[in-house]
Simulated assay, not measured.
Amino acid sequence: MRDTSELTAAAERFADRLRAAPQSRLERGAAAEGLRLARELATRAQRAEFPGRPPLTMPDAGMFAVADQLVVAAADLAETLRTAPAGAPEGDLDEAVRLVREAEGRSGL
């Protein structure tokens, strides 16, 4: 089993910043960036867990829910990667952490 704490910690940090952001900052794109990331992480988790099945799209639950959506998507992907069989691509975890950090940077938070 792999240690996925770096992914969950990065997602929690970004989510905390989203929760603390003023509404005007969320409206200027921070919430949209968080939702894009949450959707990407959720898609990756579904593809890994259910190969061959088309992934469902995470709904837009509103700018004030995006932080929670991000945390849930990251936790789902982390668990999928943590329990992946031996020999699964190690780069998936590193790439997910990179995606979180890049999205946080683009969000302006």
Rank of each mutant, 00 (worst) to 15 (best):
A42P: 00
V71L: 07
F14Y: 06
T43W: 09
R28P: 01
E104D: 13
L37W: 04
A11G: 05
D76R: 10
E27W: 07
E104G: 10
A20V: 03
A11R: 05
G105Y: 01
M63D: 10
E102S: 08
D76L: 12
A9E: 13
A45K: 00
R82H: 15
E33T: 15
E90Y: 00
R82S: 13
V66S: 02
P59Q: 03
L56Q: 10
R19Q: 08
A42L: 03
F50D: 11
A42F: 04
L37H: 04
R106H: 13
A15E: 14
E90I: 01
E40F: 10
R98W: 05
R106I: 03
R98P: 00
A84I: 05
A75L: 05
R17N: 14
M58K: 03
T4F: 02
G87R: 11
P59T: 12
Q46F: 02
L70C: 11
T80R: 14
V97K: 11
G105S: 12
A86T: 08
A61K: 14
A61F: 06
L70P: 05
A103F: 00
F64N: 07
A30Y: 01
P54Q: 12
D68Q: 14
E27A: 15
F64S: 13
E79F: 03
A32L: 12
A96T: 04
L18D: 13
A75T: 11
E12Y: 08
F14N: 02
A30Q: 06
D68E: 14
E104N: 15
A32E: 11
A103P: 04
A103R: 02
A20G: 15
Q46V: 03
L26C: 02
G87S: 08
V71N: 01
R13S: 15
A38C: 04
E102G: 10
R98E: 12
L81K: 10
A74C: 03
A32M: 07
E6F: 07
D94K: 03
L77C: 03
D92I: 06
V72W: 09
A88K: 10
G34R: 05
M1S: 14
R2W: 08
R25A: 11
S5Q: 10
Q46C: 01
D3I: 00
A78L: 03
A10F: 08
M1N: 09
E95F: 09
L35E: 03
R98C: 01
G108L: 12
A86N: 09
A32C: 00
A88L: 07
V66I: 13
E6D: 14
A30W: 02
R19H: 09
Q46D: 03
A15Q: 14
L18A: 11
R13A: 12
A65P: 02
P85F: 10
L77N: 05
A88H: 11
S24W: 10
M58G: 03
M1Q: 11
T57Y: 04
R39M: 02
R19A: 12
E49F: 01
L37A: 01
E102H: 07
D60T: 11
G29A: 12
L26D: 01
G91E: 14
A75V: 08
G105M: 04
S107K: 11
R44I: 00
R36F: 12
A48M: 09
S24A: 15
R47V: 15
Q69Y: 08
L81D: 04
A38D: 13
P22D: 13
A61C: 04
R44P: 01
L81A: 10
